[in-house]
Write a protein that binds this DNA or RNA. Sequence first.
DNA 1: CACTACTTTAGAATCATTATAAATTATAAA
DNA 2: TTTATAATTTATAATGATTCTAAAGTAGTG
Lengths: 138, 138
Amino acid sequence: MENNSIFVEKLRSSGLRPTKQRIKICKLLFDRKETFHFTINNLSKILKKDKSEKISLATIYNTVHSFKKKGYLKEISVNQNKSYFDTNTSNHHHFLDINTNELIDLKNEDVHNIKIKKRIPGKKINSIEVLVKIENSN
Amino acid sequence: MENNSIFVEKLRSSGLRPTKQRIKICKLLFDRKETFHFTINNLSKILKKDKSEKISLATIYNTVHSFKKKGYLKEISVNQNKSYFDTNTSNHHHFLDINTNELIDLKNEDVHNIKIKKRIPGKKINSIEVLVKIENSN
DNA sequence: CACTACTTTAGAATCATTATAAATTATAAA
DNA sequence: TTTATAATTTATAATGATTCTAAAGTAGTG
Ligand SMILES: [Mn+2]
Ligand SMILES: [Mn+2]
Ligand SMILES: [Zn+2]
Ligand SMILES: [Zn+2]
């Protein structure tokens, strides 16, 4: 109820009406210091904890997709069953813990310069993403 | 009907009975020089062309999954809707054409040495995969 | 040939996601 | 403030890829 104004502005400035559902999801997603990686199911469970104001699953999908469209979220493909979303929308690399399915951001400095020597005629590079799968070291 | 014996042996040696369905799928997948990247839907459509011997969708799923389990196929995650499979089971990198959704293998020499400077305590690296998204250059 | 375990198959079930259409709400105009 | 309108939320249905089920068919073995 306090500094919601930041999110109200954020929403208004991108042409989205600041509904209470969107503001709540904004706070959950963007009011944190670290990158947040989540699935719809994760988000849904967190939102369900507040039984006072239930947000429908359809709204969760709608909101996440409109935030993605506005560039506030990025979709990550690491697993074919579920979509992961990422509050870090810059081009960056990931660790994927294959024991827990958790994504962890890598800073660009953490990955040595990547150079692709091959080119495909008529095509240009759009992005380069590194996925480092990690597992328990025993 | 000729050099099926290669595939019959391949199947037998991995404890899979050489049924006509499996042999047919083997020929389609492994009797080629280039790496083959496909979805179940792709494979299904190709198999449907031969109307003389229909293979059920369940068998296509079963076969692809047992080939994966035996190490003859690798599953690739580039898209959250569909699973891609790859006849190149080594650790390797890809171009993904975002206009056509086509995967193209990169040789290891095509990607400059990748070094990951960050480590997570208690975790070891399992694999490093680079996905280079490409698009029409105009 | 006879037996058994493995395989194939059609169809049902599951599950994430998207679509639908009616009720609600935010916003701007009156 | 009231009204009008378009945007939004919602419950529910629909979709589509994948997996499950259980019955019929087949390969391997003796
Ligand atoms: Mn999506
Ligand atoms: Mn799978
Ligand atoms: Zn990230
Ligand atoms: Zn490949």
